[in-house]
Simulated scan of single mutants.
Amino acid sequence: MNRWDADQESLAETPDLAALAALLADRTRAAICMALLDGGTWTAGELAEYASVAPSTTTEHLNLLVSGGLLAEERRGRRRYVRLAGPDTAETLENLAGLAPYRPVPIRSLAEANQRRALHHARTCYDHIAGALGVALAEAMTERGLLARDYGLVLTAAGAQWLTALGIPDTGPSAAHRAHVRTCFDWTVRRQHLSGAVGAALYRHAVDRAWIVKSPTTRILGVTAAGRTAFRDCLGLPDEALFPSFTPAAPRG
């Protein structure tokens, strides 16, 4: 095959957005993907219970999502475990959620209302912080010159020094072949929160320092007393950006 033929062959392919849209057009599959934005690995049975559908139906949906490239799977004995295919998939889902219209969800109890409020305020988006807290962090870093807008967000020299001072290791673009700084359009706040390698490093640092704690059953994050102090000292976050700590529920299974 000569170069012209090779070029013509590559031109004969185009991204099939309709196929991707079809994968997410089913509400059960969409719910499964949103659940997996917690960055964890779930069994098929756990997802069936979460989505309130039969295990056989869940298996059919998972087969489509895996073959479509949105999920990755592994087998451990007789159990099947699935997770999102990677951070790019998570960021795509969060961005799509930000573009999607809201669908009313009935709130049946005060506990559900509180959980919904907490989810909107601070949660994981795969491996970084989302919700009002995530947006506040991104905006505070930009206001302080740690991030700059240049065809998207970039980490400034001052930002790199700030990360080093916090004890966060190098998150350069070469690390894990991942974008250094990216943003997701937050579906609850409708503004950008920080993702990419820097966003993931900040999340890990906050967890390691016990500034935030994650519910083992949901994507909800709680800010600890130490975290409130740290976020005020490091970035000057106002009190309204800091959600009170919570008592996590028992783990799944």
Rank of each mutant, 00 (worst) to 15 (best):
R3L: 13
W4H: 15
D5S: 14
A6T: 15
D7C: 14
E9V: 09
D16G: 04
L17Y: 14
A18S: 14
A19I: 05
A19N: 04
L20N: 15
L20Q: 10
L20F: 12
A21F: 13
L24K: 02
T28V: 06
R29M: 01
A30H: 10
A31S: 07
C33G: 05
L36D: 05
L37F: 02
D38S: 03
G39D: 03
A44Y: 00
E49K: 00
A54Q: 09
P55L: 02
T57P: 09
T57M: 14
T57S: 08
E60S: 11
L62H: 02
L62F: 01
L62Q: 00
L64T: 04
L71V: 01
E73Y: 06
R75F: 12
R75T: 15
Y81E: 00
Y81K: 01
V82S: 01
V82T: 04
L84F: 00
A85G: 10
E94Q: 11
A100C: 07
P106H: 09
P106T: 05
I107C: 10
L119A: 06
H121T: 07
H121D: 08
H121Y: 09
A122W: 05
R123N: 03
T124N: 06
H128Q: 07
G131L: 01
G131M: 00
A132I: 11
V135L: 07
L137W: 13
A138N: 09
E139I: 12
T142D: 11
L147H: 06
L147T: 03
A148S: 12
A148M: 12
R149F: 10
D150F: 13
D150G: 08
Y151E: 11
G152I: 05
L155K: 00
A157M: 09
W162T: 06
W162V: 06
T164Q: 10
P169K: 08
G172S: 04
P173K: 08
S174K: 15
S174T: 15
S174E: 13
R178F: 08
V181D: 09
F185L: 03
W187M: 14
V189N: 14
V198H: 04
G199Q: 04
L202F: 08
R204Y: 13
R204N: 10
R204T: 11
H205D: 05
A206K: 12
V207C: 12
D208L: 08
A210G: 12
A210D: 13
A210C: 15
A210M: 14
W211F: 10
W211N: 00
I220P: 05
V223E: 01
V223N: 01
A225K: 14
G227V: 15
G227M: 04
G227S: 09
R228W: 03
F231T: 06
F231D: 09
R232F: 00
C234R: 14
C234S: 12
L235T: 03
L237Q: 00
P238W: 12
P244E: 09
A249G: 05
A249L: 01
A250Q: 04
P251F: 04
R252P: 06
